[in-house]
Computed example of a mutant assay.
Amino acid sequence: MHRLRRGFTLVEVLVALAVLAIALAAILRAMGQAIDATSTLRERNIALWVAQNRLVEHQMRRDWPAADTKDGDAEIGGVKWYWREQVSTTPEPRIRRIEITVRRIADSQNTQARLVGYLRNTTDTKAAGT
């Protein structure tokens, strides 16, 4: 009489382990990409805060900056950020356009955030033509 064999063969077990290993590798890769994306989004969000802070500073002080380019830095979250403000005139004499770009490395071309805003001169009535 032949006995019935129960269980898996060695080949079946190895194939199952190979499929499991491939699936786990794919999951780990996806998790790694998600972590990288989260880190990038966090950096871009902080850089945008730096730019927004610069624009709000001008608005709160009611600045009327000259049409020029200015560089500076700010520290947020223990990290130093480098910003550049480019102020330009507009067809309306009482309004200035300000473009603020923020980067992690001072001389880098890799901009983490870019913000464009407008400042209105509320103190100079001559510029309004009145």
Rank of each mutant, 00 (worst) to 15 (best):
residue 5 R to A: 15
residue 106 A to Y: 04
residue 118 Y to D: 03
residue 126 K to W: 12
residue 111 T to L: 14
residue 108 S to L: 07
residue 82 Y to L: 08
residue 99 E to S: 12
residue 23 A to I: 10
residue 92 E to K: 14
residue 12 E to L: 06
residue 109 Q to E: 13
residue 109 Q to S: 11
residue 11 V to W: 06
residue 101 T to H: 00
residue 39 S to L: 10
residue 20 L to R: 04
residue 99 E to I: 12
residue 62 R to P: 01
residue 24 L to G: 15
residue 64 W to H: 04
residue 86 Q to M: 10
residue 59 Q to T: 02
residue 48 L to W: 03
residue 28 L to H: 13
residue 66 A to N: 12
residue 108 S to H: 05
residue 107 D to W: 10
residue 21 A to G: 15
residue 56 V to M: 07
residue 33 Q to V: 02
residue 102 V to T: 07
residue 114 R to I: 09
residue 49 W to C: 01
residue 76 I to E: 13
residue 50 V to R: 00
residue 95 I to Y: 03
residue 85 E to Q: 02
residue 41 L to T: 08
residue 53 N to Q: 07
residue 115 L to S: 02
residue 89 T to G: 04
residue 51 A to M: 09
residue 88 S to R: 03
residue 111 T to A: 04
residue 116 V to T: 11
residue 2 H to L: 10
residue 105 I to E: 12
residue 126 K to E: 09
residue 39 S to D: 09
residue 84 R to Q: 10
residue 83 W to A: 02
residue 114 R to T: 11
residue 43 E to Y: 12
residue 8 F to N: 13
residue 129 G to P: 01
residue 120 R to G: 11
residue 125 T to P: 04
residue 4 L to R: 13
residue 90 T to H: 06
residue 16 A to T: 03
residue 64 W to Y: 06
residue 101 T to S: 03
residue 85 E to G: 00
residue 34 A to N: 15
residue 1 M to F: 03
residue 94 R to C: 02
residue 24 L to Y: 01
residue 103 R to S: 14
residue 117 G to L: 06
residue 53 N to C: 14
residue 29 R to V: 11
residue 57 E to G: 09
residue 96 R to T: 00
residue 22 I to W: 06
residue 50 V to K: 02
residue 122 T to I: 15
residue 19 V to C: 07
residue 21 A to Y: 09
residue 110 N to Y: 10
residue 47 A to G: 07
residue 6 R to N: 09
residue 78 G to C: 14
residue 107 D to I: 05
residue 109 Q to T: 03
residue 100 I to M: 04
residue 90 T to R: 07
residue 42 R to Q: 14
residue 32 G to L: 08
residue 69 T to N: 10
residue 54 R to T: 00
residue 33 Q to T: 04
residue 5 R to N: 08
residue 121 N to F: 07
residue 86 Q to R: 07
residue 53 N to D: 11
residue 5 R to S: 14
residue 100 I to H: 02
residue 59 Q to Y: 13
residue 74 A to N: 04
residue 63 D to K: 00
residue 117 G to K: 04
residue 21 A to F: 11
residue 96 R to C: 00
residue 71 D to V: 01
residue 119 L to T: 05
residue 16 A to Y: 11
residue 122 T to R: 14
residue 91 P to A: 08
residue 81 W to Q: 03
residue 93 P to Q: 05
residue 50 V to T: 02
residue 14 L to W: 06
residue 25 A to M: 10
residue 17 L to M: 13
residue 74 A to G: 08
residue 71 D to Y: 00
residue 73 D to W: 05
residue 99 E to R: 10
residue 49 W to D: 05
residue 18 A to G: 08
residue 82 Y to S: 10
residue 36 D to Q: 09
residue 66 A to Q: 11
residue 37 A to T: 09
residue 20 L to E: 13
residue 79 V to N: 05
residue 107 D to S: 08
residue 8 F to A: 13
residue 31 M to V: 13
residue 72 G to P: 03
residue 118 Y to Q: 13
residue 29 R to M: 08
residue 46 I to R: 08
residue 94 R to P: 01
residue 19 V to W: 15
residue 109 Q to V: 00
residue 34 A to F: 07
residue 104 R to Y: 01
